[in-house]
Write a protein that binds this DNA or RNA. Structure first.
Length: 729
RNA sequence: GCGCGAUUAGCUCAGUGGUAGAGCGCUUCAUUGACAUUGAAGAGGUCGGAAGUUCAAUCCUUCCAUCGCGCACCA
């Protein structure tokens, strides 16, 4: 028997199977080369002078595994990229991974200690770096293949890693330029020390945690001082009060007093400073400038002595006398005991206050005075356009002047607020895995340069904050500082899409780096997605056992269903509740589309040009209806109303096309009026092809799977992913 | 303390200055007909509270309450 010319592909006789299609399709897409805009131009799919659309992928941790947050990010970015590619734009989405310096190093250190009972200091810097590097290299394939399983149309030929050669050059260039401009400086300042992580961290890596502790009132000569940390008070020899405080007006600034303190008699000096809150406690305090930022500033204003009391591990130094060598966590009770016995402890109260902890380790931050590298945010410098202003001013201007638009715009305020509170950024870290600070020491001399100045010079052992190199990401991935074609073509990028939780860490730092180093904003739009939560709006966490694993969901329901569930209902900046039911619902939708396709294909006989004279008013109405929806979906995407676009496309296809149009077409298709039948067949084909295109950015696999099984005469391109977005001609 | 957001159906959330919507869940009916189903119908809400602006407020303004989230050097 001769096969019928338009015989339907037998795959349509079964329900749609994501498992049987997704991997193969991704492979075909990759082999086609169309993820790379150069190939699209070469093959005549994209015009070489087409408008560009570019996104850099927020690089996931190289040693990480894909979680729902990544999945949401990939769904949104791929949606944007596929839509704009279909519009004919020169579209580039650059993949990469991040070394995640502290996280990766501590993971490897942990494993080494477990297996070999050795610390990083036992095995040395070179050996540790070798092992961390090997670990990162070995695990990168995991996150990359998981990223691909979402259908992400990333141009893998441009893959970047934060520690590779090109990025190293960019980081060094950035450091040198900022140093030469006087923006980077080394300073002896009070910094946030994480005793567990054994490194300094930036202000943004601190989490304030509310704790219930005791507040102690201590007798300090004629005064009563309040403190929550008696174990830091050994060296306190300045007593501070507000200059306007009438209660203490008999005391003069600079006056000295002899008094009995924890370890014996001392000489205290009275200091008057407006930083004191008269309402708080007794309105008098003593200061510990080495371990408290406020005290450090007061000491700076009056040129007072500073003395270290606690070492880097949290152990009391000899200044603590008999308590020296004790860990601060254990010493407090002992010290209180002594204060009591000496009659210095007047009373204690319950007290709730915020403690600074390190985001990563959870350890309580111990401020320390240390020599570190900083970026000056309040210093006037010359920008590439010749203007002289501070980094802060330029960062603010970028958003105020709408060079960058943030969606949703309520985050503008958050961004300004952050900038206004921003202090100089500590960029050096006492860890080994990362870009090493290009500075060299010999004796008291310091030289800042990339290569060693010669014999006898030791390189600074510190590495740079991971956000320093991440801040360069939009242009370091494009080959900067070389004036590459990619850099010239694709920078500034069109959209930066990321979670609102790293607005400060990353988005703001990119703006800082790009405006100064490149002289332009890193991106024109910021799209902030929310956090993915469980079906009840709870945070997903291991301890709650409510984690939904995207890899499981892809396996069970397909990447398309997983993607759609993360886009529908996800307004920018709002958290997304996600349940397995929701994902299952969109799997049904993928199957629905599959069946719509089967129905149309079995009830039509190939594509012909539509003979407009045969169209009934209803036929025309159906076509108009489709193109109206296509226009609205496109408009919503451009306005970043992605959740609206997805919902609209979904409802059109299910409630309009399937439920109404197909149903009402059945009698026509089975009827005797052959002209009416022919017209309706062409209308259905047009709606089917249009709907596949409309849904492709949201669910690329099932739409492409159908496309690949369409008769050749229905398709204008081999791959749906490079077909033209439907517009009314 | 300052700021932001939320408060709408049993649950999760859209939404608009003109007598309320979706998904899931629930109830009933039809159907093996493109559909490991689908279609139709239905129950269920004084749209957090109060005042104001308006012909008209769930939507705008003010105040309050509750929840969530940022930011913050109160020792």
């Amino acid at each position: 028997m001769e096969p019928k010319e338009n015989a339907i592909n037998p795959d349509f006789l079964k329900p749609y199977s994501p498992q049987d299609n997704e991997k193969n399709l991704y492979k075909k897409w990759e082999e086609s080369g169309y993820f790379n805009p150069d190939v699209c131009i070469e093959r005549g799919i994209t015009a070489s002078d087409a408008e560009t659309f570019s996104i850099v992928l927020p690089p996931p941790n190289v040693t990480g595994v894909l979680h729902m947050g990544h999945a949401a990010m990939l769904a949104v970015e791929d949606l944007l990229v596929r839509y704009h590619r279909m519009l004919g734009k020169r579209t580039l989405w650059i993949p990469g991974t991040d070394s995640a310096a502290i996280a990766t190093q501590s993971k490897v250190e942990g494993e080494i200690y477990k297996k070999e009972k050795k610390t990083r200091h036992d095995i040395g810097r070179d050996e540790l770096l070798k092992r961390v590097g090997e670990f990162a290299e070995a695990s990168k394939d995991t996150i990359i293949s998981q990223t691909k399983s979402m259908g992400s149309s990333l141009d893998w030929s441009r893959y970047a890693y934060t520690l590779d050669e090109t990025r190293y050059k960019a980081v060094m260039e950035a450091f040198m330029r900022m140093y030469d401009a006087g923006l980077i400086y080394r300073g002896e300042r009070i910094v946030n020390w994480d005793p567990k992580g054994q490194t300094t961290i930036s202000d943004d890596e601190i989490v304030h945690e509310e704790r219930k502790e005791k507040f102690y009132y201590l007798k300090y000569g004629p005064f009563t001082i309040g403190t929550s940390r008696p174990e830091t008070k050994f060296g306190d020899k300045y007593v501070v009060m507000h200059p306007d405080d009438a209660r203490y007006k008999e005391y003069e600034h600079g006056q000295t007093l002899e008094l009995e303190w924890i370890n014996g008699p001392i000489t205290a000096t009275v200091i008057k400073d407006e930083a004191i809150d008269m309402e708080f406690g007794t309105g008098v305090m003593t200061i510990t400038p080495w371990h408290d930022a406020t005290d450090f500033e007061i000491a700076g204003r009056h040129n007072l002595d500073k003395e270290q009391v606690i070492d880097e591990r949290g152990i009391l130094l000899p200044i603590a006398g008999e308590f020296a060598g004790q860990h601060i966590k254990k010493a407090r009770e002992n010290i209180l005991e002594k204060l009591r016995s000496k009659g210095l402890l007047e009373k204690e109260e319950d007290y709730t206050h915020n403690v600074s902890t390190a985001e990563r380790t959870g350890e309580v931050i111990e401020p320390q005075i240390k020599a570190q590298w900083f970026i000056a945010v309040n210093k006037k410098v010359e920008f590439p356009d010749g203007r002289v202003m501070t980094l802060k001013e330029r960062m603010r201007e970028a958003v105020e002047g709408e060079e960058i638009k943030i969606a949703p715009d309520r985050f503008n305020k958050t961004y300004y607020h952050w900038i206004d509170n921003l202090r100089d950024w500590n960029i050096s870290r006492q860890i080994w895995f990362g870009h090493r600070v290009p500075a060299w020491f010999t004796g008291n001399e310091v030289k800042v340069q990339i290569e060693s100045p010669g014999e006898g010079w030791e390189q600074d052992p510190d590495t740079l904050d991971t956000w320093f190199s991440s801040g360069l990401w939009t242009f370091s991935t494009l080959g900067w500082p070389e004036e590459t074609a990619d850099f010239k073509t694709y920078h500034p990028t069109t959209v930066l899409e990321t979670g609102y939780d790293i607005l400060f860490f990353w988005v703001a730092r990119m703006i800082l780096m790009s405006t100064f180093l490149v002289g332009e904003v890193p991106f024109k739009n910021v799209y902030l997605h929310g956090m993915v939560r469980d079906g009840k709006g709870q945070k997903m966490s291991k301890s709650k056992g409510n984690i939904i694993d995207p890899l499981d969901m892809i396996e069970k329901y397909g990447a398309d269903a997983t993607r759609l569930s993360l886009v529908v209902g996800a307004a920018p900046g709002n958290d997304v509740p996600l349940s397995e039911d929701k994902i299952r619902g969109y799997k049904h939708f993928a199957n629905k589309l599959w069946n719509i396709s089967r129905f149309v294909l079995t009830n039509t006989e190939g594509k012909k040009d539509i003979d407009k004279s045969l169209l009934s008013p209803r036929d025309q109405e159906i076509l108009d209806g489709f193109y109206t929806v296509a226009k609205e979906v496109g408009d919503d995407i451009e306005k970043f109303g992605l959740y609206l676009a997805a919902d609209k496309a979904y409802h059109y296809v299910w409630d309009e096309l399937a439920a109404k149009i197909l149903e009402e077409s059945k009698p026509i298709l089975n009827g005797d009026d052959s002209e009416a039948k022919q017209a309706r067949q062409q209308v259905l084909i047009e709606c089917l092809i249009g709907s596949l295109k409309l849904l492709h950015p949201f669910m690329p696999f099932v739409t492409e799977a159908v496309w690949q099984r369409l008769p050749e005469d229905m398709k204008d391109t081999e791959f749906l992913m490079v077909a033209k977005w439907p517009t009314k001609n």
